[in-house]
Design a protein around this nucleic acid. Structure first.
Lengths: 343, 343
DNA sequence: GGCAGGCATGACAGCGTTGTCTGACCACCG
DNA sequence: CGGTGGTCAGACAACGCTGTCATGCCTGCC
């Protein structure tokens, strides 16, 4: 009589326990907990007192199940420790939090297989939506995922197959601004150290580099070295490029890691080389000279992606949209022309 | 007759749908889905075929509810974009993933109130356990949380109240190694730039600094300037400290941000100052001279915390444990004695 | 032929909540 | 005094799954 679930009461009280204790029905407890109208103030007060006394907490799992939504979104990236992704994560989490949702983060470690498994698990949990930085261009367009109506927004890289909302960075514009900056400072022979062409973004940046090179009518054929790169591999190309009459006077590095590899290589080589790095990095202005970079805004991208996702959750049925986020050239000095005599 | 939930079938098939289609009971479908024994191979095959055809996915929410566990753990930190926390996040996620659990990450933005709200929401979700880097020393020891039997592991900072598993970094040892390193290189007048004493770790490091100062019998009273710090505030103290006969010749910076502030200040000041920074940072060896640091290993800490949490989930009932993770002095050059003539 | 014992399968309840519907009660009005 | 309408409260089912228990069938053995 005292409780519907005597032994469990000690563990974790349910609405039934509260109801029994307060001599009301379970439904009335539910109404009080959810601030629904139609409960007399004194009844509500009595229920609240019992809730307090028993330490009752609503079981959101049961609630979700009943309501068919989980108030959860997920973020799937390659590696959470990577600042690019963690900034995205922070932004997405923020958007989720202000909408009373929670965020599940998962790393796929760059493996399409793992990514598929992770997404499937998320779909099985019935997360309300997913933001994915896809491991490869075909990875997630899995039949199962397609079939599940779970809204997905892709980031940073597009995915083939059924069109989905996608948030990209303006790789082309970023590279163009870098090249133009260097040209404006008198450089004519510019090299590119790109990342592994397995990455879509790396290919994009290479294409943009070549295209800009041509559209600006720069002499010679564009010098490009695609990664993966180490300080050693960078040094090798550099020594080759800086010989002869058309010596390279400036380089663009295709991402963060390569920028660092280049800086390490430069420290030994002591070449009068100008530089624009793709991706901003924390200490860019502590290096000597401070490094001019193409700044992408991962936080803004993450925010945008989350916002797009939530629009879908709220019923937006418009056709899938691709947003290209602008980049910004942050001029710090390393892009200036430096004669051998300087410094 | 064809299905228990006709209209919903189009949306998302359930075991009941599969069962009806395969002419078996729901329980048999369950058995097949979960690879339980006791199903004839041909029956299983038939069920699998239907599952495939309908695109059935088990609803994990329902499963969790039935089983009373969510296969979910949570991580609560101040700011996911901060590398220290994101490295922890990556490590915790990894431990969770290899145990078939998922990770909910939440930022409390340094506010104890928000932290409490976040944790309460997680408890309501019945996450199986929580790793928390607490915003303050009393924050999470909330009655509600205490009452919920949810296992919690604290990281980086201890929390007053009922003892809980805690993973700390060896602040004392880290500072001591830094001071000893500087002393070994001939420094006698060493200053500390600590963070805001509101942070437990900042206070710890200050205490350790003072204690080491005394135990090594260094002359004079220890010079300490607690934060928050900016390049300006650092420069101010520096100019004061480096005058007179007992001029400070080396400083220790209490964390990452302060190290950077100091480097910025030094760039203008051009003082022959030695430095050991607390916390490693990405480009520490690209700065000139490369910065010697006390390295904490956030990934190892996160891993340890997650492992401790999972031990509890597996039924470990031993008394709460506090683990202190070692730090490591990474010598890169900035700690060496530098006369005014050098460079 | 009868029965023990094993195997394959199913019926049913229940996890904790909420949506729907029904009902009790009271006040007010013509 | 009967009818209308509003307010508060409860009964019940359902969300989709799994644990427990029951059932039916077949095999093998005495």
């Amino acid at each position: 009589m005292t409780a519907l679930s005597d032994h469990r009461t000690a563990i974790r009280p349910t609405m039934a326990d509260v109801a029994a204790e307060a001599h009301v029905s379970v439904k009335t407890v539910s109404r009080v907990v959810n601030h629904e109208p139609g409960v007399r103030p004194d009844t509500a007060e009595r229920v609240r007192a019992v809730i307090e006394r028993l330490g009752f907490r609503r079981h959101d799992g049961a609630r979700m199940m009943r309501q068919g939504r989980t108030f959860t979104i997920a973020l799937v990236v390659e590696d959470l420790a990577n600042p690019f992704y963690s900034q995205i994560g922070a932004a997405v989490e923020r958007e989720a939090r202000i909408r009373q949702h929670q965020l599940i983060t998962a790393s796929a470690e760059g493996s399409p297989t793992r990514e598929r498994a992770v997404i499937e698990a998320l779909v099985n949990r019935r997360v309300d939506g997913i933001v994915v930085v896809p491991a490869d261009e075909s990875a997630s367009s899995d039949a199962a995922v397609e079939a599940s109506q779970t809204p997905i927004v892709y980031m940073d890289r597009p995915v083939r197959g059924a069109p989905r909302d996608t948030v990209l960075s303006d790789n082309h514009g970023g590279i163009r601004s870098a090249v133009e900056h260097l040209v404006a400072h008198g450089h004519r022979s510019i090299g590119l150290f790109g990342d592994d062409p397995a990455f879509w973004t790396a290919r994009q940046r290479r294409e943009a580099f070549v295209a800009t090179h041509q559209s600006l009518g720069l002499p010679g054929s564009p010098r490009v070295s695609m990664g993966p790169h180490s300080p050693t591999s960078v040094r090798e190309s550099l020594t080759r490029w800086t010989q002869g009459t058309d010596a390279t006077t400036a380089v663009i590095t295709g991402n963060n890691r390569i920028t660092i590899a280049l800086l390490l290589a430069l420290r030994d080589l002591r070449l009068p080389l100008s530089l624009v790095g793709y991706d901003d990095f924390e200490l860019a202005d502590l290096v000597d000279p401070p490094v001019t970079v193409v700044h992408q805004d991962p936080a803004a991208m993450g925010q945008k992606a989350a916002q797009q996702l939530f629009a879908r959750l709220l019923g937006d049925e418009s056709p899938a949209q691709t947003v290209v986020m602008p980049t910004r050239l942050v001029v710090r000095g390393s892009g200036l022309r430096r004669g051998p005599a300087s410094r």
